[in-house]
């Protein structure tokens, strides 16, 4: 299971919540800008509250697609309709459709609870969206955008090594 190395996890865990939330919202906003129809497939499940809990970070991310709201918390997971927990690398791999959610569920790398219809709708929505996170992160790099994108891609490849399915 590709856990985040403590060297990377520790700074995130001790960073002020407002800072983590701000960065997460910036990335979320950038993804929505690049994919304005991202949540069209969700249908009625746009109203659902989704909680993502990276098992290698002491954080919970709650997203409500209908209002495009994202909040970050620590401690007990916030109330949500559907909840998914797993290593941050796999959660991001799922966000990009680079990992197969069912396979990660079978291998027990991911755990899910709550409204499974809402969870399934989100999984299928993201799977069709072709989000490219390194490109999104790279867009914050200004003149160094290609370098940042390339570095983010390198990290993604290393972290998902063996978990990412063979790409065409």
């Amino acid at each position: 299971m590709p856990h985040l190395p403590p060297l990377l996890a520790k700074p995130v865990d001790i960073a002020p919540l407002w800072l983590v939330e701000r960065v997460a919202r910036m990335i979320f906003s950038c993804v929505l800008k690049a994919h304005p129809d991202l949540f069209a497939r969700l249908g009625d499940y746009r109203e659902s509250r989704y909680c993502f809990s990276p098992s290698d970070l002491q954080l919970h991310f709650r997203v409500v697609p209908a209002t495009q709201a994202l909040s970050v918390s620590r401690g007990t997971p916030p109330p949500a309709d559907a909840h998914i927990e797993g290593p941050i690398a796999l959660l991001l791999g799922l966000l990009e459709g680079r990992c197969d959610a069912d396979a990660l569920f079978f291998s027990r790398d991911l755990s899910v609870s709550g409204d499974m219809e809402a969870m399934l709708a989100l999984r299928n929505t993201l799977d069709d969206s072709a989000i490219d996170l390194p490109r999104v992160i790279g867009s914050f790099g200004g003149p160094f955008s290609p370098v940042v994108t390339g570095f983010a891609r390198y990290i993604r490849t290393r972290v998902l090594e063996g978990r990412e399915t063979a790409w065409n």
């Binding site: 990992c99 799977d127 399915t165 063979a166």
Partner: peptide, 11 residues
Amino acid sequence: RGRAYVAEVVS
């Protein structure tokens, strides 16, 4: 199943 599964199994 997801597109990652389809890509790998088909290839």
